[in-house]
Design a protein around this nucleic acid. Structure first.
Lengths: 247, 247
DNA sequence: GAGAATATAATGTCTGCACATAATAGCCCT
DNA sequence: AGGGCTATTATGTGCAGACATTATATTCTC
């Protein structure tokens, strides 16, 4: 989201309404109100940049900035030559901030604890192989627990391709969380993320301190860095977890 | 996300590497590679725009565009006068596209069917009152089922504040889905969204055709339009559902 | 030395202009 | 008609210069 700190917070007590400078945020707000009011109806073509610039009394670049922002937000669809169209079914985009578990827990005012459960080399199961795009060669398999105030909150199961993150193989995972290491050392990665609900498997339930079969929130993530697969993780949250965001 | 269609797809077969125009994407790529390589280390201050413009041989505005984009993506933190700093713990931002169920189902190549289960006026439970910020006055309560190829996929429970969306009260919900109506008539809304896992309640399980207590994915959403609460919805997805996104 | 006033440096944004790019619309030719 | 070339048009982006906005740094005052 672009910063939008409402550029003008009223000037003095003398000056009437103040001429109000024309920033791109102004234009965006005016455009958005036309969208909300229906003046620019769904599917319709809106006036071109030059026309709007004239109408609003600003440079075309300013209109461009505003409309580009609305397009990024999913309200408008822009195509060269074809013009700018109001999107019919605005696909709402929710932005989830995937924080580091430790930060998330500490931000909630709890003490954080990390506990390594297991660590071994093994060929990953088929599903993980597919996700990582690797062969059947052995990978590092590690399980761990994240606790808040001593209470288990998240179970982490991870497969690491040794080729993708060489340094990680030497790290003492008992003290440094794999996630923390990766964030520090293999930054700026890409990947995919999937959220789902599942019945807790017995051994995970045992670690999380809930009944086997309990409904648990599961986050699976594949991390890559420029084509190279690095790691596959499955985070299983203890029952009651909610992931929240503004929309 | 800004569009980034790799502006230049090689010119001819004769011209060597082609001078390669300096676009803001170029600058962004070069900056990002410095981030990845560690040349610009976490927490560090990077050179200012003017310096980079000189170095890259472009206008300051171009550098600005590139750095602004990286800041939006969460890699950099920029403050006037203070300069531009590399973010220490880049909080990954996953963008979920919340599509309309119908679109989602039809996009998957399935036939879509909507079935209204119930509709009545009643005072909402306390939790919903809080979420909507309304009083105890009666609201519309509607339950419905979304089916793909005749198989139940999502159960929808909804509370609508009559004050927030007057027109909706008159709509024949049996034929028009509440969601569809809202998208068509009350666009450009805001709200909050929360994702969780839950054990399917008996009556919902019955509708979804799964065992009571099955782990189901639940999406709750409160929709507002400029302070006015409009609706609270809980979507319960049939077991097996996954919400996926690139990161 | 503490606090307030002031200078300064970095980013934010506007303007006006130019050209690049992409896609539609129209034309021409067969 | 049909197919392909060309003209046109709306958006995308670059540049240089200017001013606005905001913190930080510095200096001044008591």
């Amino acid at each position: 989201m672009p910063s939008d700190p409402s550029p003008r917070i009223a000037a003095g007590h003398e000056t009437p309404p103040a001429p109000e400078a024309i920033t791109w945020q102004t234009i965006r707000a005016r455009a958005l109100s036309r969208l909300r009011s229906g003046a620019w109806a769904p599917g319709e073509l809106i006036p071109n940049e030059a026309a709007l610039a004239t109408e609003f009394g600003c440079a075309r670049a300013t209109v461009n900035r505003a409309l580009r922002d609305l397009a990024e937000a999913g309200y408008l669809e822009r195509r060269r030559k074809a013009g700018t169209r109001v999107v019919r079914n605005p696909v709402r985009k929710a932005t989830l901030s995937i924080a580091i578990i430790r930060d998330e827990i500490e931000a909630g005012g709890h003490s954080y604890e990390y506990r390594l459960l297991s660590r071994r080399m093994a060929p990953p199961p088929r599903a993980v192989q597919d996700a990582l795009g690797t062969n059947t060669h052995p990978c590092l398999h590690a399980c761990a627990l994240h606790l808040a105030d001593g209470i288990p909150r998240v179970h982490e199961e991870r497969w690491v391709d040794p080729g993708g993150a060489p340094g990680l193989m030497e790290v003492d995972l008992a003290t440094t969380g794999a996630n923390a290491w990766l964030v520090e050392n293999v930054r700026y990665t890409e990947g995919t993320l999937s959220l789902s609900a599942a019945a807790a498997e017995a051994h995970i339930a045992a670690h999380l301190g809930c009944a086997p079969g309990s409904a648990v929130f599961v986050l699976e993530r594949v991390t890559r860095m420029r084509e190279t697969a690095i790691t596959w993780v499955r985070m299983t949250y203890a029952p009651g977890y909610r992931m929240t965001t503004a929309i």
